[in-house]
Design a protein around this nucleic acid. Structure first.
Length: 834
RNA sequence: GCGAGAGUGGCGGAAUUGGCAGACGCGCUGGAUUUAGGAUCCAGUUCCGAGAGGAGUGGGGGUUCGAAUCCCCCCUUUCGCACCA
């Protein structure tokens, strides 16, 4: 791929040589090395999600990282001190699985992959500061993950409990709710089972309110992510009402968001897993039936339960509960449409005003009582109702509350409960505490010691890290492989010195990724996870680029960690990230997600070897705006390849060597027309490209550069200064997108310093509009002609020009002109009466 | 089912706030050069029409001098949530 540049002694475009040369020089010059402690107001923290080292990076990573790279490089040119680090999310199940498959050790496998992936990233010229690289599976890192755990433990935010968990029967481990979708484990694809198990949890629910409320302080986060997080946290305001079990007088609290329907309760329903069920003392004729039902419910997965939503079933317990509002006695049922983990695990059932309760009541012939009407003049008839009426409306059949509606009704009914001490207002969340125990080997050990005498004892900070022992066998057995390693398990209790045992579980890898962005700031610190002052200077992250898949997982977890660290005084900001950007996914030409099993993976490294890094980058940028999904096809490269090889690179041979002052603007009238219009084109391009960068829409930036290069014709340019400004500023604008090429051209132009040390061009505000402009002329809203007028022409001049147009006259002749609307610089709209 | 977004040429996509729809690129057509063309250059390329002209941003209605852009209804599609009481 040589270009003939015979007119001057400029070598052809040899991308391989250029890439190698500059990657080496940039490395030597430590171009990407971020200052240890930046000035507080002139820094930019550019973060991309760190990578799971599975083999090599793929096109999705490539896209993600070149977006971040373009921003980082432009920020350098804007004079910012830039932190652009990278690292490895190195613990986790896939490493274990792959290691088992290849009969190697997870650590070996992981380190190998890190080596390969790092090399690829360096090869594609991403401007990471590798001196800050982190590896979450390295003791120097996970020492501090354990430290984080201990901080949470000390504040009572890390705790152990027995609970119903999501059990992955394939990977044989517990999963967090965030790792299960539609009852299917995200990683293994297995149907998740319910299991009652002891495990560690983080009390993220303590932060639920702040996690919701502070979303309002993030204007630069995409709305969809904020909405997803709000719904995931699922805050609702309601009332907890104490119903009473008739026989025993024991309280049976339920949670409702519709206190205004409380007089419509005709039965109660309890989840088969609910604790209260055990204390009911069922009569013998019901015990077996209920037990059988519980058993059946336990074998059903969540999806099965949900898919049966049309057909609700349950069993009567033989017991009754009393509604504290009206003293009514209602049947108590067990039904698996009631979730054990939400509210109190029991609900008041109002068939007339809840679809689920309605279906259930219909099935079992339970009475339905209407207590809300759509409005004052419409009444509902129980006999003809086909579905529940779930909207708000005036209360009826509700004693003293009759006539109240909506907000007011909720208020009064709640108020009454609190006065009579039969209930209390309550806020509930769908968000559950974060389950972090994993019964697997390849993870961060939990720094807790179990002592018969002292209970749960944290490992003293001075003894961190608790090192993950190197073991031969780590096959999943359903309990942690570490439990079978006595050298690891058996320790002395740090408190009493007696025999004690370590915790055999390892942590969810999302714990590791909840604070990695802070470690980058001070990656080599062995006295603390990071230095507070350095963090205060760099934080918050100015831009975080990643895929949307993390909206309910990582992006909630790490906000939680950050807030916790904020409370401890370790970080100065309440939120970690100022601007979040989700790039679109990369799929193959048929729209299929690229995966090894499908064999449709396009390797960025192969692409870059074949076509060159800069062409590959430009191809990816040009094919779609960054937020949209891309169906990758090599066809996307042909346009940008021609542009680079035939158009852009050769302009360096037109450089005349004046070394112009790039800050110097030309004055209107100082250049002949052709040159002035090129000067305007240059400045329009600078403006468009700069704006495109702000929106991360590199496709339009490239389009603008293509236009500029197309319009650039050195033969008609007499001013060497202008000519050279165009050449140099074009190189600068293309530099963040095609760094090697730009750097090479910059050097050929005679510069000794890197183009990334040069200053990003600023458009001349007096030169973005030409001397004459075209004004559109509409008649009755239809475009009839355009007229060219001087840029400073007033309405009268434009009207005159419009009148002179035959095309316009054709539509206005003999008609009465009602009005004329003039939009300065854009159009003239003439309204006529026909 | 609920919620949010999207729908523009053969294709990827442009069009800050309502103001010349289709920038830029791919593909395609014609031409030039060439032994050759999967190279390069020039011209053309939304649709209908020979032309004048007309239609046109998923479909239908509306607001406006003017709508891809705002409002209402419908269709399609992507994503999220999915018994949360």
């Amino acid at each position: 791929m040589k270009t003939d540049l015979s007119k001057k002694s400029i070598p052809g475009y040899n991308f391989a040589g250029i890439e190698e040369k500059w990657q080496q020089r940039w490395g030597e010059a430590q171009l990407y090395r971020a200052p240890d402690k930046p000035s507080a107001d002139n820094n930019f923290y550019m973060l991309v999600m760190y990578a799971y080292p599975s083999g090599d990076i793929h096109m999705g990573h490539f896209r993600n990282y070149i977006i971040g790279d373009a921003v980082a490089r432009q920020q350098m040119m804007l004079g910012k001190e830039v932190l652009h680090p990278f690292g490895w999310d190195a613990f986790g199940l896939p490493a274990e699985r792959a290691a088992i498959k290849h009969d190697t050790h997870p650590q070996v496998w992981t380190k190998q992959n890190i080596g390969v992936s790092r090399k690829t990233l360096q090869k594609v010229g991403v401007s990471f500061d590798w001196s800050r690289e982190v590896d979450s599976s390295d003791p120097s890192y996970y020492k501090w993950t354990q430290w984080m755990f201990l901080q949470l433990f000390n504040k009572g935010l890390a705790y152990q409990k027995t609970g119903w968990v999501n059990w992955d029967p394939v990977d044989k481990t517990v999963l967090a709710n965030e790792q299960v979708k539609d009852g299917i484990a995200e990683r293994s694809g297995a149907q998740v089972e319910k299991k009652e198990l002891v495990g560690w949890y983080f009390r993220i629910t303590d932060y639920a309110d702040r996690l919701v409320d502070d979303l309002d302080t993030l204007p630069e986060w995409p709305d969809n992510v904020k909405t997803i997080q709000r719904e995931w946290i699922g805050r609702s305001h309601g009332l907890e009402v104490d119903f009473v079990i008739e026989e025993t007088g024991k309280k049976l609290p339920i949670y409702t968001t519709r206190p205004d329907t409380i007089y419509g309760v005709t039965f109660m329903a309890i989840s088969p897993e609910a604790e209260i069920l055990k204390s009911l003392n069922l009569d013998s004729e019901y015990t077996a039936k209920v037990a059988e039902y519980q058993k059946k419910a336990a074998t059903r997965t969540d999806i099965e339960r949900a898919s049966l939503s049309e057909d609700k079933d349950g069993v009567f317990t033989g017991k009754y509960a009393i509604n504290p509002y009206n003293g009514e006695r209602v049947q108590l049922w067990v039904a698996d449409y009631v979730l054990a983990g939400y509210g109190t695990g029991a609900v008041m059932a109002v068939p007339a005003h809840d679809t689920r309760d309605f279906a259930f009541a219909k099935k079992y012939g339970i009475p339905i009582r209407v207590v809300i009407h759509p409005d004052k003049n419409t009444t509902l008839d129980v006999d003809t109702m086909e579905d529940a009426f779930t909207d708000y409306g005036p209360m009826i059949n509700s004693a003293q509350f009759d006539g109240l509606t909506g907000e007011k009704a909720l208020d009064c009914v709640s108020e009454y409960a609190e006065q009579k001490n039969i209930g209390r207002r309550k806020v509930n969340y769908k968000l559950k505490d974060w389950s972090i125990s994993r019964q697997r080997y390849w993870g961060c050990p939990i720094p807790i010691i179990h002592c018969d005498k002292c209970g749960l004892v944290p490992v003293p900070e001075s003894e961190l890290p608790v090192v993950l022992p190197r073991v031969e066998s780590y096959h999943p057995k359903g309990r942690s492989p570490l439990a079978d390693v006595p050298e690891f398990m058996n320790v002395k209790c740090p408190k009493c010195g007696g025999e004690a045992q370590r915790d055999p579980d390892t942590m969810d890898t999302f714990v590791c990724s909840s604070w990695y962005y802070l470690r980058y700031i001070d990656a080599l610190n062995d006295k603390a996870p990071f230095d507070k002052e350095k963090a205060a200077a760099w934080m918050p992250i100015d831009l975080y680029v990643g895929g949307i898949t993390h909206a309910t997982g990582h992006l909630i977890y790490f906000r939680f960690f950050h807030k916790f660290l904020h409370d401890l005084g370790w970080v100065s900001t309440a939120e970690p990230v100022k601007k979040l950007f989700n790039h679109g996914m990369v799929s193959d030409a048929d729209g299929e997600v690229m995966s090894k099993s499908k064999g449709n993976v396009v390797s960025p490294i192969a692409l870059c070897d074949e076509r060159g890094v800069d062409i590959s980058r430009l191809g990816m940028f040009f094919t779609a705006p960054s937020e949209k999904p891309v169906q990758w096809s090599d066809d996307a490269l042909s346009g940008v390849e021609k542009f680079i090889v035939n158009k852009l690179y050769p302009i360096i041979s037109d450089y005349r060597g004046t070394g112009p002052d790039l800050k110097c603007y030309f004055k209107s009238g100082s250049l002949p027309e052709a040159e002035w219009s090129l000067y305007i084109k240059l400045n329009q391009t600078i403006k468009r490209v700069s704006e495109s960068f702000e929106r991360l829409q590199f496709n339009t930036a490239i389009a603008a550069l293509m236009e500029l290069v197309r319009d650039y014709n050195p033969e008609v340019i007499k001013s060497d200064e202008l000519n050279d400004q165009v050449v140099l500023k074009t190189i600068q604008m293309v530099a963040p997108l095609a760094p090697h090429l730009a750097e090479e051209m910059w050097q050929l132009a005679g510069f000794e310093q890197s183009v990334f040390k040069s200053t990003w061009p600023v458009h001349d505000p007096d030169a973005v509009i030409g001397e004459t402009i075209n004004i559109a002329v509409q008649v009755n809203g239809k475009l009839r002609d355009t007229v060219a007028v001087a840029v400073d022409a007033d309405q009268a001049v434009v009207e005159q020009a419009a009148e002179a147009s035959e095309k316009v006259a054709k539509h206005t002749e003999g008609k009465q002109i009602i009005k004329k609307i003039y939009v300065p610089g854009r159009l003239l709209s003439i309204v006529v009466k026909s």
